[in-house]
């Protein structure tokens, strides 16, 4: 109910809680909050893609399991290692930036970019091999169909679709980090931290792509 004291002029209701206006309720700046929201949104894009993949796989009569432990899985494990390490170097970059040590921060970002680029290149090589085997987005190689009769052509579609979109994210991340590193003088530590958020998110997505797409399709020995 509304009460009106005719006599008093009270202080505005300020400072009762950070949620009452005039403050940052999460104690997080706009840009960081914005990046978190973007990450929420983007994780749903990947979520939907992975669900679509699982849907297709469950409903198929046969699904190819083409990755031999050696070399495919070992190869993709190395890719995973690259991404994980790049996350570590990114953390280092952020903590250097926090200490206002922009030179070190830039070095660590370059290290991150190195690992990220390594990931992309290894991934490209792998794609090249698969395409060389005859795997396409719309069809499976002849030999695979002999091993797994009736296997769904959606294998190629989901594989290239999901890893392609992920690679696109890594690539955008490389550009983003590149800009931050080159013009680091103009950015403050929060900007570095935010680019780090994005980069870790890309890493996080791979933590789901790798087991679902690779490890569940290991060739039976």
């Amino acid at each position: 109910m509304v009460e009106v004291g005719a006599h008093a002029t009270a202080e505005p209701l300020v400072g009762a809680s950070d949620w009452d206006g005039g403050a940052l309720p999460y104690r997080v700046g706009h840009k960081k909050l914005g990046m978190w929201l973007f990450i929420m949104s983007d994780s749903l894009t990947f979520g939907a893609l992975l669900i679509a993949y699982s849907y297709a796989r469950i409903s198929s009569v046969a699904w190819p399991r083409p990755f031999p432990f050696f070399p495919s899985i070992v190869f993709s494990s190395v890719m995973t290692l690259c991404l994980l390490s790049s996350s570590l170097t990114m953390v280092m970059a952020v903590s250097a930036a926090k200490k206002r040590d922009k030179k070190r921060a830039r070095k660590w970002i370059f290290a991150t970019m190195f690992f990220g680029a390594a990931f992309v290149i290894l991934h490209m090589i792998e794609w090249g091999h698969l395409i060389g085997d005859g795997l396409m987005a719309f069809e499976l190689p002849e030999e695979w169909l002999k091993i797994w009769p009736g296997a769904s052509p959606l294998f190629g579609a989901t594989f290239f679709g999901i890893t392609g979109l992920h690679m696109f994210h890594v690539f955008s991340g490389l550009c983003y980090l590149g800009i931050i590193a080159l013009f680091i003088k103009r950015f403050d530590d929060e900007d570095v931290e935010i680019s780090g958020l994005y980069w870790h998110f890309v890493d996080l997505v791979w933590m789901f792509v790798f087991p679902l797409i690779y490890l569940l399709s290991i060739k039976p020995s």
Partner: peptide, 24 residues
């Protein structure tokens, strides 16, 4: 924020069906 990304994913798949010959 939470629903458009799902349509985006669906749209990408539909576009692949259309242009890349996949059959999601």
């Amino acid at each position: 924020l939470l629903s458009f990304p799902v349509l985006l994913a669906g749209g990408v798949l539909l576009l692949l069906d259309h242009l890349a010959g996949t059959s999601f």
